[in-house]
Nucleic acid binder design. Structure first.
Lengths: 217, 217
DNA sequence: CGTGACCCTGACCGATTGGTCAAACTGTTC
DNA sequence: GAACAGTTTGACCAATCGGTCAGGGTCACG
């Protein structure tokens, strides 16, 4: 029950030895990362055990540690490999595009990701909640750079009068908060709404309305 | 560094033995709960250890277990005692009041709580993130009841034309998401904004604007 | 089909963790 | 101040955890 594609080729090594990476290696590293995503996102770093990950991946514990030197290394590989995917929609925001359309597209894409990749969302949420001890300053400074860059774009749009004046940083935070809420607090949302349709289906028109009203001058 | 008031008297027992609760008992249970809030909110349930809690409380581990039968029991006492505090602002929403004012007041109070009680927010976030295994159906059904009740009030306001038409459940979710984001993802918010003023100071006017625009017909 | 590199595992280890217990200590009450 | 309930602790335990290791199995390639 863990048979997805893990589109990651792992050329990531600092120095020399770039062995071509066996077929078995590719398969098993993929299985481990998929299992680790499942287990880490559901239990957090400390709550997850190597035995769980090994069982979920269908491998023995020593075999898992044959492919990754430690539990921490698995976690890092996961986070590092996923961060780009996670930030891609924001990167894709086009300064040349129509302002409201660009921001709405970003919001909708993030909401889509909450539906399609809730485990990834929870993985990051877990990490940040505990003070981001394992993702730390390096990635956080990349994040800051990207956000500052896009905030400047939004400010420019506002200066042109093409967007209602709002604090761009908090606008971005609000997109994160509102979309990721449906992935991170899924159980609570479902508990309140009761059984039935996908909560995100109801969220989509609400968020459309919310951001339309916020951004229209 | 853990000297706050813990306003909880703990009459909570199902059946008979209601001993008057010694002075020492009141003090030490308070110390333990305060320490547990600190440790659980920072590390999650599984990430927290009894030794950490004992050290933070300034007690020995066996002494902690003299006052609470298990780590789980401490966690439950914390969550149970805090849930009322957490939901009080929503309970306080007055059906007789002016609609936008009531909702704005609720939002502002929640934001205030993110500033003043971030540990409590993270405690709940941790619990819900992991699927709420220890808070479960009982509390979730209380929560649903309360939210459904208030959603009905909001719907009534909308029917009267005193509020712009919005999905009341998702409106409440949006208040939760936007306000708690600043407590739960504090490190990320600060990393992006850079060092300086309290992020919530910047959030307050933004959220005022956002909800004003959303709710004005 | 042989051989060397790669892959896999059972058994094991030391550290940590939640929890126990007997014994000692302290506060309170008559 | 005797006596008893209430409080505290060092020593200890069983289970779990991340990680190691020696040895055996398997794959690809000549």
């Amino acid at each position: 029950m863990a048979e997805e594609q893990n589109a990651q080729d792992f050329t990531e090594d600092g120095d020399e030895g770039k062995r071509p990476l066996t077929r078995i290696q590719k398969v098993n590293r993929g299985k481990i990362l998929e299992a680790a995503l499942e287990v880490f996102s559901a239990n957090g770093f400390r709550g997850a055990t190597l035995d769980q990950i090994a069982a979920e991946a269908g491998l023995s514990k020593p075999n898992v540690l044959y492919y990754f030197p430690s539990k921490e290394a698995i976690h890092e590989a996961l986070l590092g490999g996923l961060l780009d995917v996670w930030l891609a929609p924001l990167r894709a925001m086009n300064p040349e595009g129509e302002p409201r359309e660009e921001i709405m597209r970003y919001m909708r894409r993030k909401l889509e990701m909450s539906r399609e990749m809730p485990r990834e969302s929870r993985l990051f949420a877990n990490e940040v909640l505990q003070g981001a001890p394992r993702i730390g300053s390096g990635l956080s400074s990349d994040l800051k750079t990207l956000v500052d860059e896009k905030a400047a774009v939004i400010d420019h749009w506002i200066a042109q009068g093409r967007l209602a004046p709002v604090d761009p940083h908090h606008l971005i935070f609000s997109i994160w908060a509102l979309t990721q809420h449906y992935a991170d607090f899924d159980v609570q949302v479902r508990a309140v709404l009761g059984p039935g349709k996908d909560p995100i289906e109801g969220a989509a028109p609400f968020l459309d309305l919310l951001f339309t009203r916020l951004l229209t001058p």
